[in-house]
Amino acid sequence: MAVSLFAHEVSDLCLGKPALRSLSVSATVREALSALKKLGESYLSVWSCDHSKGIGSDSDDCVCVGKVCMVDVICYLCKEENLSSPLTALQAPVSVLIPKGPPIVGHLEPNASLQEAVDLILEGTQNLVIPIQTRNSTRKKLLQKPSSDSTLHNNQEYCWLTQEDIIRYLLNCIGLFCPTAIKPINFLNVIDSQNIPVIHYDDPASTALPLISESLVHQTSVAIVDVEGKLIGEISAFTLNSFDETTAAAIATLSAGDLMAYIDCGRPPEDLVQLVKEKLEERNFGAFLELMEEEFSLSSSSSFCSSSSDDEFSAGRSGRLGGYSARLVRRSEAIVCYPWSSLVAVMIQALAHRVSYVWVVEENGTLSGIVTFIGMLKVFRDHVKSMG
C-alpha cells in the first residue's frame, strides 16, 4: 500500500549515489567558478564548518548551507556593477550566490522515512543532504578542510536526495496510487495557473533575470510566449547551466528570443556573439568584454553555430503531447502537456526529459499553467493522508 511505501527509509533511495563535492562557505565566487569547470559538476554543495578544536575532532560541526551552480554565477554577474567590474565581483564570497530566505537544503538521517523527506520538500526544501551508509561509515576518518575536492564532513560522506529521485521512486510503485495516478491533472487541481514565470519573445532578456533566479530556486524555467500568449519556447536554467560565465553578457544585451538562439545549439552562434560584443562596447563594459574574449580564446572548441536562425537543431523534444516525437527540434522548445493529460503521463514526460516541470497548454498552444514535481508530490502526499 502507498502508506507502507511512505514508511520506507530514505537510505533506500540513496543506493549508488555519488558523494557530494563541496566548497567552504569562505570560498570566493572565482573559486566556485573554477571548481564547477574543473570538476564538471552541475552543483557544488556549500558547507559551513566549525573546526575550533582541530580538524577531525569530535567537535567538528559541518552543515551544508546551500548549493551553487553556473546559473548562480551567471545571474550574479548580470548585475550592472558586476558587468562593469567582473574581476572584482569574482572575489566576493560564494555566500553571495546563495538565495536569501529559508534554506533550500536540509539534513536528514538515512533512517528517516520517505514521508519525512516529502514533507520537508513540500515545506520548501529543494535538496536533502543524506549521510552515505557504507560498511566503513563508522570508521574514524580524518576530516579534510572543506574544498572542491573534499567529500568528507563530520567524518562521513553525504549525497543529495532530490525531488526527481523521489518522483522516480514513486513512479516505480505507481500502481499503489491508482486511481489517482491515472486521473487528468485538471481534475487533481495540480496545475499552477497563477505563478507562471513568463516573458514575451521581444522583451529584453534582462527582464527575465529575476525570473531565472526564481526558476532556479523552484526548479522550473522561464516561458517565452508570443503576442497571443502562445508558448514558443523557454529559457531553461538546465540549459544555461551548461554554459559559462560569459553568458551573463548575452542576458544583459540580447532579447529573449535572441537569448534562446544563443543557448540553443550548445555553442553560441557567431553572429550573436559579435552582437553581444558590440553592445558591451556601447555600454562601456570593456572589462567584461575582455573577460569574454579571454574565455573564448581559452575554449577547447573554437567552433560556433553557423546562424541564429532555425537552421540549428538538436535531437530531442517535441512541443506535442507526450514530447516523444522523433523530429529534430530546438533545444529551447518546451516540454508540454494538456489539461486532460493524466498525472502518470506527465510524470513520465518530465522524468524522460530530466526536467522537474511540464508546461500546460490549451489545444491552440496558449500557455495556461505549469505542473511541477512539488505539485505532484502534494497529490501523492494527500493520497496517503486520505488512506491513513
Results as ranks from 00 to 15, higher is better:
6 F>C: 01
8 H>W: 14
11 S>A: 14
16 G>F: 05
17 K>T: 06
20 L>N: 02
24 S>P: 08
25 V>G: 06
26 S>C: 12
29 V>H: 01
32 A>R: 05
33 L>T: 05
39 L>K: 11
43 Y>R: 11
44 L>G: 00
49 C>L: 00
49 C>W: 00
53 K>R: 13
55 I>P: 01
55 I>M: 12
58 D>Q: 10
66 G>S: 10
67 K>E: 09
72 D>S: 02
75 C>A: 10
77 L>A: 01
85 S>M: 08
86 P>W: 03
91 Q>D: 14
101 G>N: 05
106 G>W: 04
118 V>C: 05
123 E>Q: 13
125 T>A: 04
129 V>P: 00
133 Q>P: 01
138 T>C: 13
140 K>W: 10
144 Q>Y: 07
148 S>M: 10
155 N>F: 01
158 Y>V: 00
161 L>C: 03
162 T>C: 07
164 E>W: 07
168 R>C: 12
175 G>D: 12
183 K>Y: 09
183 K>W: 08
184 P>S: 09
186 N>K: 11
187 F>G: 04
189 N>F: 12
190 V>M: 05
192 D>R: 09
197 P>K: 12
206 S>T: 13
212 I>R: 02
229 G>H: 03
230 K>D: 04
232 I>E: 00
234 E>W: 06
241 N>L: 05
254 L>S: 06
260 M>C: 15
268 P>A: 12
270 E>Q: 11
274 Q>S: 14
275 L>F: 09
277 K>I: 13
277 K>Q: 15
278 E>T: 15
284 N>L: 12
287 A>R: 11
291 L>G: 02
294 E>N: 07
303 S>K: 10
306 S>D: 14
307 S>L: 07
312 E>C: 15
317 R>N: 11
319 G>N: 12
326 A>C: 13
331 R>C: 14
333 E>I: 15
338 Y>H: 13
344 V>K: 07
346 V>P: 01
355 V>A: 04
357 Y>K: 11
359 W>K: 07
360 V>D: 00
364 N>W: 09
368 S>E: 06
371 V>T: 08
375 G>L: 03
380 F>K: 02
387 M>L: 14
